[in-house]
Design a protein around this nucleic acid. Structure first.
Length: 877
RNA sequence: GGGCGAUUAGCUCAGCUGGUUCAGAGCAUCUGCCUUACAAGCAGAGGGUCACUGGUUCGAAUCCAGUAUCGCCCA
């Protein structure tokens, strides 16, 4: 084996081992008779680039997958991307615009050609970036929501749901993005508080001199008013019942209606009703059968209902109409007012509520089993605090508007053959549609020319909700071997923001198609924030470049840096220092092996007692900590599991164990000890492998040469073979304190380690001398002797209620020692007082469980004897 | 405005069905050390009325109520 450099070089190891893993096909999975462990990736946008959120999310997935693989399961992590219709189309439109091409001048086919070119050019970058991170995805299975199989699956599910009566076409108030010229879902609308104005406008009562005053933040919508509404209980307006008012500027006569919805306290208690442009007004309008007057064009300008404002943008029209209202004496006053408006997540444009003909999925029935599954923990949310919000959402689920006025996506498989509302058919293909149309219309002479396919595409989520099935072709071929084997999947790792519109819908789709959940566990990660707690975003420029980070700290360093402080469901305040900690850790382990490798081995010498003891202790220590790590894993406490292995390696293995077995300088190590040390080291890096795959694989092959079958990535995860011996572990805890006591003594008195010391022990409680050889070795003691008497003129300290003495001429500062002992006595007396007070409380002794009282008595006894020892010591000085 | 959740060391967080594994961990800070694996290191140390106010209890960080502050979801 070549000499090991003193620093680990991630750049060198990472490329090498990723290629090696790929070459040997370790990531690839085929159905077999092993237990499957499946994760489907939350598909990132095909043209996106890696950001910190992806890093966190995919690191967690990789940890879970790698561990499962080592546990001997058939691990399959399916990668892929989605087409992100709005975002991608917006980018393509932008690009074309820069080239002087207007989307509206292109046919669907032409536009799609550009979109595919864009996708081919930028697509998949993110997947390559995931490889840098070490993601052990089965790349042979990479899929895309718009590839042939997925495309057909999406159409099929539309047809299936339509035939089952879940999909319908209807008028709905939708969130219209006038910039993107499409509807966006409720979830894609961001509500923002803005400073606005509340305008008080008076309407003349028809045929009278009286006026009523309404308050509105959107005076331009006056042109679309179809009523004025009062609360039936409002006595101020009771004389107006049944009358009509004249809408200013429009000069239309509209009724005064009564509805409980009106808040008598708000504004003037008198509400204008504009059913086309407000969701609540629409509902009132439906109750009172009011006319719907849409005043807006799709691009946000006013249409002919806007009269002389036709063609003017809604915000400009608002300004102008206020002036006109004022000039014509309709404006009573305007006041500052804080209001909340919806803005588009994609374009930032203010969302326009708009009545429009759209396709919907009826959700109520689909939501039933999905709600139950989560409430019954059939599908576990981690952390479970999200169950509440999930339930709230599912119990108040609204129908899902799935059509989008875009080209980039799955074109809705509906064909229109006439002008009536109902003159359409839903089918997989045009041929099929024609057959159905002929049948439905009764017109045998219909031809393909008479059919027109719906221009809209489906919401991106309408493809990703099928993801856990469609990646295995389980929609088109529900009984194929793969979907039967891999579905249901095991874990899903995603962000809470999309719990509803992705996770919940996958659960619905799972029960709808297969009557089975799509996954057992949903691990919800937090949002990666910067140190100031701001969400990382491109616009703020506060996100570090992930690739740059990996170059600086190594992929492993960044992986553990992200995981050190990220309990499930909590936001992660990212700090580059965490990556540094990760890098340092890598180097620490690196040097541990470097040390082992630096020793000459002599097979002929016997194992020293210290090494045998060290091995005994560390074996138990490993077993005990590993059991806890396994528990942390099963509770999805990934950070805790990482911290567990971190401390086990750094503190227990490096700081304690290696020091215990270290041979004298220049001396060889015996064969048995080095073999045990290597074995422990191998177990440690196995457990570490899911977190730091590159470093550990590199070390694994530096321990000894291995063939492809015995690479670390496919090695066997340790198993717990026995229960750790607590007696040994507790005994050693005491030993640590003794060793620390002696170190403190050396330090205080500037006694170098080279100078050997004698230690005397006066025992007052049962105490094992099992680890004495270790104490002697680590502290360079020439002897440890029991004594019945105090050792005069010696430095002393107390561990438990045993006294330890180190005689050394002139090294003892009596006053300082006295001070220290007094302090300790004071502390113990205070403690004893508390215990005695408890025990003298009759109600405590009567009511508390016997065990608790017994424990208090024990505490009392221990404290008393310790105080006695300390006092004797003090007296002796 | 309605609902949910949080508040523990300078920072990020553990702390299960109340009781010596109850006040913890990592990082940061401070003090010594270039001791032959690692200064990307070693050995130590300090640091918290468990947000506040009441209540239940023999006993509360833990259970209950209220208050304050923050976050998320919904309107």
């Amino acid at each position: 084996m070549t000499e090991i450099p003193s620093k680990y070089n991630p750049a060198e190891a990472e490329g090498k081992w990723y290629d090696y893993w790929m070459k040997n096909n370790y990531f690839h999975s085929e159905p077999d008779d092993r237990e499957p462990f499946t994760i489907v990736i939350p598909p990132p946008n095909v043209t996106g680039v890696l950001h910190m959120g992806h890093m966190l999310n995919n690191t967690i997935q990789d940890v879970l997958v790698r561990r499962a693989r080592m546990q001997g399961k058939n691990a399959c992590w399916v990668p892929g991307t989605d087409h992100a219709s709005i975002a991608t189309e917006a980018k393509v439109v932008q690009k074309l615009k820069a080239e002087g091409v207007d989307k509206r001048d292109l046919s669907r086919e032409e536009f799609m050609k550009h979109a595919w070119e864009w996708t081919d050019k930028h697509g998949g970058i993110i997947l390559d970036q995931l490889k840098r991170l070490g993601a052990s995805c089965d790349w042979d299975r990479t899929v895309f929501t718009m590839d042939d199989i997925r495309y057909e699956s999406v159409l099929k599910s539309f047809v299936d749901l339509y035939n089952d009566g879940y999909i319908y076409r209807g008028y709905r108030m939708v969130n219209w993005d006038p910039e993107a010229l499409t509807t966006v879902s409720d979830e894609e609308v961001i509500h923002k508080d803005i400073q606005s104005k509340l305008y008080h406008v008076r309407y003349q009562v028809e045929g009278e001199d009286e006026f009523v005053t309404i308050a509105t933040t959107r005076p331009e919508t006056i042109l679309g008013d179809s009523a004025v509404c009062i609360n039936p209980n409002d006595e101020r307006y009771s004389h107006l019942k049944g009358k009509r008012v004249i809408v200013p500027i429009a000069n239309r006569s509209v009724p005064i209606i009564e509805d409980d919805y009106v808040d008598m306290e708000f504004g003037t208690g008198c509400l204008k009703i504009t059913p086309a442009h407000d969701i609540n007004d629409k509902e009132i309008g439906e109750r009172h059968k009011l006319e719907v007057i849409d005043i807006l064009n799709d691009n946000g300008t006013l249409n002919k209902e806007g009269l002389h404002y036709e063609g003017i943008d809604r915000f400009e029209a608002r300004k102008q109409i206020v002036i006109e209202l004022d000039e014509k004496d309709f404006l009573v006053k305007s006041e500052d007012y804080q209001t909340s408006v919806g803005t588009s997540e994609r374009t930032g444009a203010i969302i326009e509520p708009k009545v429009s003909l759209q396709w919907f999925v009826a959700m109520k029935k689909l939501a039933g089993p999905a709600l139950k599954a989560v409430m019954d923990d059939e599908v576990k949310l981690i952390p479970s605090k999200f169950k509440n919000t999930y339930r709230h959402w599912m119990e108040n689920v609204r129908d899902w508007c799935i059509s989008r006025q875009l080209y980039w996506g799955h074109q809705i498989p509906a064909w229109y053959y006439g002008s009536d509302h109902d003159d359409f058919v839903v089918a997989m293909t045009e041929d099929e549609a024609l057959e159905k149309a002929k049948e439905k219309s009764g017109n045998k002479n219909l031809s393909a020319k008479d059919l027109h396919q719906d221009d809209d595409v489906l919401d991106t989520w309408f493809s990703s909700w099928l993801w856990p099935m469609s990646v295995f072709d389980g929609i088109r071929n529900p009984d194929n071997e793969e979907v039967n084997y891999y579905y249901k999947t095991n874990d899903l790792v995603t962000a809470p923001e999309i719990l509803f519109f992705w996770v919940a819908r996958m659960i619905m789709a799972g029960y709808y198609y297969r009557d089975q959940k799509p996954f057992d566990n949903v691990y919800l990660t937090g949002i990666v924030r910067d140190k100031e707690g701001r969400k990382m975003s491109k616009s703020l420029g506060n996100s570090p470049d992930p690739i740059g980070l990996m170059e600086r700290y190594g992929a492993d360093g960044v992986r553990v840096g992200m995981l050190f402080t990220s309990p499930a469901g909590n936001d992660l305040p990212f700090d580059e220092q965490l990556c540094e900690q990760g890098r340092n850790f890598a180097n620490k382990i690196w040097n541990a092996l470097r040390l082992l490798k630096s020793w000459k081995v002599d097979e002929k010498i016997d194992q020293p007692e210290t090494a045998a003891l060290a091995n005994e202790w560390f074996s138990n220590r490993f077993t005990s900590v590993f059991a806890q790590i396994e528990k942390d894993f099963s509770n999805y406490r990934i950070s805790d599991a990482l911290m567990g292995i971190y401390k086990l390696i750094w503190d227990d293995y490096c700081s304690w164990y290696l020091e215990m077995i270290k041979p004298g300088y220049g001396d060889p190590v015996d064969g048995k000890t080095i073999a045990q040390a290597i074995e422990h080291f191998e177990n440690l890096i196995k457990v570490l492998h899911p977190f730091m795959p590159f470093l550990t694989e590199e070390l694994w092959h530096r321990i000894e040469e291995r063939d492809a079958d015995s690479a670390l990535i496919v090695s066997q995860w340790p198993v717990i073979e026995y229960k750790a011996n607590d007696e040994i572990l507790n005994d050693f805890k005491r030993v640590e304190k003794v060793i620390a006591g002696i170190r403190t003594f050396r330090k205080q008195n500037n006694i170098p380690q080279k100078e050997s010391l004698k230690l005397f022990v006066k025992t007052h409680e049962e105490s094992s001398s099992h680890f004495d050889p270790i104490v002697a070795k680590l502290n360079n003691l020439e002897s440890i002797e029991k004594t019945d008497d105090k050792v005069e003129g010696a430095y002393s300290f107390v561990v438990g209620s045993n006294e330890y003495f180190i005689p050394l001429e002139g090294a003892v500062d009596v006053e300082e020692q006295k001070e220290k002992i007094k302090e300790e006595i004071d502390y113990m007396k205070g403690f004893l007082k508390k215990v005695e007070k408890k025990l003298s409380n009759e109600r405590f002794v009567e009511n508390a469980p016997e065990k608790v009282v017994e424990m208090e008595r024990q505490k009392q006894h221990d404290a008393e004897s310790k105080i006695k020892v300390l006092e004797e010591q003090l007296a002796g000085l």
